[in-house]
Design a protein around this nucleic acid. Structure first.
Lengths: 217, 217
DNA sequence: CGACCGAATGAACGACCGTTCAGGGGCTGT
DNA sequence: ACAGCCCCTGAACGGTCGTTCATTCGGTCG
């Protein structure tokens, strides 16, 4: 065992076959996503991530300042894209709050089914970011929640939604949180191997949401 | 710096005031709950936990075989109690599926509001258990889910529930998962400082659930 | 009073962490 | 041909981790 220096005639660039074909920075991102999703940020080591894309530990720091910055980078890009998609879906859905809510649920749930790994990391690993970096992720989440609240408010005002009362008044924020919790956590258990398609999931969740907020038929 | 042996005249039993009053094993459990909930299992060290109850690292191993066993111990007791409470609530609620579902939601949501810390740990930190210990926790979770599925099935059969269809048939398991996700994650954002009481939370969630499954009035 | 025992101590151990950095290989442009 | 640059390597560093263990403490029983 120990070391071996000679006796390797042609292994001058030995790892080139194992190496991820993509540009290194993307390979690192992909490997980190996978590892963080499977085992969680704190127990995944820099060495694990880099080995998964055929590089050694030190190479990480040619592309990211730290392990923490890597996590923030991959979460922020996922979260930003989600926020953009949600806002786009709502703005393209016309003016009926029912159509807006249905469009929102459809985009949100289908994305959480299809990009399970990314959604899982973005939703579960935020807590490990240092407090400076966590702020803009939380801002984006609040923005998404406020989109839902705005749809509900418009629906209530227009008389097409009749959501449950809470202590005499309507707490639309609590309702939005309850619905978002439901939509977000499909990424925790939905598997493409199951018998239910992404399309059907989106439909199911949209139906339940419209019923929960008392949408008029 | 370095060490200091002399010059401490009366600190023979120095930590007795800092010590948690309860029996040590309970003090350890309580401290671990708090720390795991606030910062997450992998980054909480044995030294952290023991310092929080006024002991030193080594003393943990007089009460638990390992840090892993400690986590399993506190999760399993919380989970077992939850399963018991849910089954009791349902069995005491009479025979109407609507009453059963409402009773279940009430117990489940109120417990997740009141025992936020315990619920948070039990639901978020399972992944750190080694695969042997994780099995019976997952079994208990499945059992709870099956209680919900059974209530839904009874309601559908009796014609009092009319839940959304999924690809032509009714996927009660998916609906139960969606509802449980919603109920479970109140522990992630509900704060007793808010303007909404536990009682109101339970009512709100029960209303939404009954609407989502299409309960007849 | 002395033997005994469960429980706490705190130094020590080996392993592994994130990060740094000197060294070196293989491009590109001239 | 050669300089310059980007990127990768892998040893090394200072810490910290979970766990062990010889020792000591405080109380109880005979």
């Amino acid at each position: 065992m120990t070391k071996r220096k000679p006796a390797q005639t042609e292994a001058v660039a030995p790892a080139i076959a194992d190496r991820d074909q993509r540009p290194p920075i993307e390979a690192i991102r992909a490997a980190a996503f996978q590892q963080f999703a499977e085992r969680g940020y704190p127990v995944v080591t820099v060495r694990d991530i880099m080995k998964a894309c055929g590089l050694t530990q030190g190479a990480l720091y040619n592309h990211f300042k730290s392990k923490d910055e890597l996590l923030h980078d991959i979460i922020a890009s996922t979260q930003g894209e989600l926020e953009r998609l949600c806002q786009q879906a709502v703005s393209e859905a016309g003016s009926d709050p029912r159509a807006k809510l249905a469009a929102f649920v459809r985009v949100y749930v289908m994305r959480h089914c299809r990009l399970r790994v990314e959604a899982l990391v973005a939703n579960r690993e935020i807590g490990w970011l240092d407090s400076g970096r966590v702020a803009d992720i939380r801002r984006s989440r609040r923005a998404i929640r406020d989109v839902v609240v705005a749809i509900l408010a418009q629906g209530v005002e227009g008389g097409v939604f009749d959501p449950p009362l809470t202590g005499g008044r309507r707490d639309l924020k609590a309702i939005a949180m309850a619905l978002l919790d439901q939509w977000t956590h499909v990424s925790m258990w939905y598997g493409p191997g199951g018998e239910i398609t992404e399309e059907e999931m989106a439909r199911l969740y949209a139906d339940m949401a419209l019923r929960a907020v008392g949408a008029r038929p």
